[in-house]
Amino acid sequence: MGVAQEIFRIGRESADANGGGRLATVTVAVGELAAIEPDLLSFAWEAVTADGPDAGSRLVVEWRPARQLCGACGEVAERAAGSWLRLCPRCGLPLRIEGGDDLDVLHVEFEEGP
């Protein structure tokens, strides 16, 4: 809920700074390790924008998975979504995790000024 409010604040500010009116779409990036559930975020977005002029605007979530990397073989593509490999399936070395921390507003789309 707090996250949805911050997205709304940034979206509204961006539209206002560009002389815009009603929000149409706000696009955000959410990483797999950001501890945010996209469905819950969309639900919170509806609650935050309800009853205001931006009711009915859309929150688009671009999901950014974390990557598992092997020191010898590079990125391990075999990982199934939401599961983690303990060792590299090719060489058996331990893997490290990169990325998935994204929590960014990417674009704001709005109607022409009021």
Binding site: I10, S14, V105, L106, H107, V108
Partner: peptide, 15 residues
């Protein structure tokens, strides 16, 4: 309809 790129951390205030 106008689209602008924002590229801001959602939790910028907290950060």
């Amino acid at each position: 309809m106008t689209q602008v790129d924002v590229k801001k951390k959602i939790l910028e205030g907290n950060l």
